[in-house]
Design a protein around this nucleic acid. Structure first.
Lengths: 248, 248
DNA sequence: GCCATCTATTTGCCTAGACATAAGATCGGC
DNA sequence: GCCGATCTTATGTCTAGGCAAATAGATGGC
């Protein structure tokens, strides 16, 4: 056999797991190390769950959990009968935390401040209908808000709420509470669509975010539905230089 | 009891699971539906694993897997002794697939074309040292590549490879094979840092991506390390209007 | 009233064994 | 030699039971 695992049977309790650490986690870590460290190259075939279980002196279910999770993370590929192998191209996916603006700003150590810039009730414009999959224009509540980190503007929230599915939004005072935070408690959703892109600052954005007209800005857009019924669309434009980051 | 689950005990086999579907998946789906459908609002406390298991007539381990995975997805919050509740703010995180450019373009139904624009061996500039955590400048291979979707430019790849950790990159012919694809097979990594932001097209980018100078462009940056040793840094600038999207 | 300790409960993880399902491998028949 | 039917094997999931660890809430001492 081309490799050997660490803990031999002796060192563990007879029943239960104990020994201070979760075993599936040990297995996960060791397999991950082998892959990341290049001991097992992409395409390499791992021993079967039975074999690994025997080597660790643990139950197959434990090995199964470790390998299943690693496959879930995109590191391994599993197929019945053919076995488990290291994915040809790892790094399939990245996870980003999408925090509430409030939390994001407070995590920076800055005091969070919020301001409602605009509030209007109108018919949904064409582009919004297209984006939400609306056949006919409906009545919507349009809010424009500014989120500050300390004294500097951090994000402009351009929010559209469908008043047909959520008529009680009409009666909410959004001068204190951001629509984002209200919506979370107000309505559930079943489908979400998020996308990120770059945009140029127009005159209004430039003024609101204290940057120059034409500056490149990072923006996110999110649409949510409740069982095919459009609930809300939001465009979040971040201050100049913002980056969305993840590390692992 | 305030709710009731679907399948009563009778309908299932005596031992094993069978019945065509995975039970943990049924539980997951039903819990998810309850949360997304608003039956269980944010903050709601769900029954204990024991209770749910009793209602479904299944083992606690099965319920545990369902709830554990939902917690992992960010829908639930679990704490020993206090139980499981619906997360106050769902939608904590989004997963984006980070495909290879080639795959991304081919998924669009366009033929993939690749071109090496520039190749040079130099000392790592200051900003790169800072980004990779290098104390002293090292010898690096700098590549600039263009990925086409059909006839239109799709992405500029600005790649820097550390020749100290990866000296054999010197001997690779990058005119045919993109550095990205070569690196995957050439070296593993232990740490990755990804970030996305907006940038403005300078004269060179404008020419390469057929856009106007100053146009806002979406860009991603990725640094990878192998046990503290910097391996490579890449800046990927996408054509005008590119969006990174996910749906669930 | 307040603080430290104890207890009960809930999730977390494990074992050992079983059946289900997919799919590679092999064997026959032609 | 080719093709379908059968066998075999690895993963997928479940059961039933158990110990471990965290912690909310009760209890007791001062």
């Amino acid at each position: 056999m081309a490799f050997s695992y660490a803990p031999p049977k002796q060192d563990r309790r007879e029943a239960g797991q104990a020994m201070g650490q979760a075993t599936y986690r040990e297995i996960k870590d060791e397999v991950r190390d082998k892959v990341r460290g290049g001991v097992w190259r992409p395409g390499h075939e791992l021993p079967t769950e039975h074999e690994i279980a025997a080597q660790y002196g643990c139950a197959r279910a434990t090995v199964n959990r470790a390998l299943r999770e690693l496959a879930e993370e995109g590191l391994l590929e599993r197929k019945r009968k053919s076995g488990t192998r290291v994915r040809a191209s790892p790094l399939r996916q990245a996870r980003f935390d999408i925090p509430l603006v409030r939390g994001e700003i407070e995590a920076l150590g800055e005091p969070y401040r919020y301001r409602l810039l605009e509030r209007a009730e109108t018919q949904a414009p064409g582009w919004l209908c297209a984006r939400m999959g609306l056949a006919a224009p409906v009545q919507v509540l349009h809010l424009r808000c500014l989120h500050h980190a300390g004294d500097t503007p951090y994000q402009v929230e351009d929010r559209w709420i469908n008043l047909v599915t959520l008529p009680r939004a009409r009666d909410v005072d959004f001068t204190k509470l951001g629509p984002n935070e209200w919506l979370i408690g107000a309505i559930p959703f079943t489908d979400v669509d998020i996308s990120f892109s770059a945009t140029a600052a127009d005159a209004r954005l430039a003024q609101e975010l204290s940057c120059a007209v034409g500056d490149p800005l990072f923006q996110g857009e999110r649409s949510t539905w409740l069982e095919a019924a459009p609930v809300t669309y939001v465009r979040m434009v971040f201050r100049r230089g913002h980056r969305m980051t993840t590390r692992y």
